[in-house]
Structure formats: C-alpha cells, structure tokens
C-alpha cells in the first residue's frame, strides 16, 4: 500500500514537475507546480509529517501559488518567446545538470546505503504539538528572525507594488 501510494504520487509529482518545466504557458506551469505540491503533501503524510503536509498545502498551495496565479492573471502573461541572450546558460546548462543529477544519484545510492524504509504510521512525531514545542523552545530565535523577515517582506512587497511608476 505504501509502495502504491508512493509510486502514484511520485509519478504525479514527477510528471507535474516535468510539466512545470516543459509547459510554455506560465499558468500551466504554476498549476503543475500546485500538483507537485499536492503530491508532495501526500508524501509528507507518508513520512509522518502531517503538520508539514498541511502547512505545505496552506502556505504553498493556498498562499504562495495563488499569489503566482494571481500575478500571472494580472499581467496576462502569455507563452514565453525564445531568447538566446544567455548563451552560457544554454550551452553549459545541460552538461552541468547531467553532472549534477549524476552526482546526486551517486551520493544517494552509493554513499547513503544505510537508510531506513519508510512505513506509514511507524513514526508520527511530526504533529503540530511537537513542532510547536520545538519551534518555541530550541528554534525560538530563528522563529523570531523569520517573523521579522516576513514583516520586512510584507513591507517590501507593499513598497514595491505601491510605487508610482514614473
């Protein structure tokens, strides 16, 4: 069952991920990304991270991506046009990517053999309570910092978006 769920949602995630990259239209990419996030949320649940799964959906799916879609709609962004200005990226990108995925694969499969098997429900510490406890004790300072960061981001966004152009 675990395997089935994983395979289904992994395939969904990968297909949607490819879709993000391959679709010509931003909104298709965006929605594919939502698909990725949704399937990742399920995978999080499988990994025992129920809070994170929900947070993923609320924050990513419900806020960040909506914002994206919103902006795409607002700008009425069309399909992108080809461009060849960044020739370096065009040329060096693919070999580097291949090298990168090869490295990652090598690392995962040769250097990390001692990994666990994931069994749904065998470890369920990822509850809101646990995360809250950790967040307000050990990670209090980062938490506060990140709060300030968000505040700044809000201000920044407001300032940027409200700016009178010319």
């Amino acid at each position: 069952m675990d395997t089935v769920l994983f395979i289904i949602f992994a395939i969904v995630a990968i297909v949607a991920g490819f879709n993000v990259v391959l679709q010509r239209h931003p909104i298709s990419s965006a929605l594919s990304l939502v698909g990725v996030m949704g399937s990742l949320a399920v995978l999080y649940l499988l990994l025992g991270a129920e809070f994170m799964a929900m947070a993923q959906m609320i924050v990513y799916g419900g806020a960040v991506m909506v914002l994206f879609i919103f902006v795409i709609m607002l700008l009425n962004a069309g399909a992108e046009k080809p461009s060849s200005k960044a020739w370096f990226a065009q040329i060096a990108g693919l070999p580097l990517l291949l090298a990168f995925i090869a490295t990652l694969g090598f690392l995962i499969y040769s250097a990390l053999p001692g990994l666990r098997a994931v069994e749904f429900g065998s470890w369920t510490m990822g509850t809101a309570e646990e995360i809250g406890k950790l967040l307000f004790t050990q990670y209090l300072l980062p938490f506060e910092v990140i709060s300030v960061l968000i505040l700044i981001a809000i201000l920044g966004a407001v300032v940027l978006a409200l700016k009178e152009i010319d």
Binding site: K85, A86, F88, A89, A92, G93, L96, L97, A99, F100, T103
Partner: peptide
C-alpha cells in the same frame, strides 16, 4: 545581467 547565467554559475559552484 543574465540571471540564467548566474544560475548556471551557481550550479557549477555547487557542484
């Protein structure tokens, strides 16, 4: 100014 080039550099750097 080509952001994609920057990205490629970052990729190379992380490698």
């Amino acid at each position: 100014g080509r952001i994609r080039n920057y990205a490629t550099w970052v990729l190379a750097g992380s490698l």
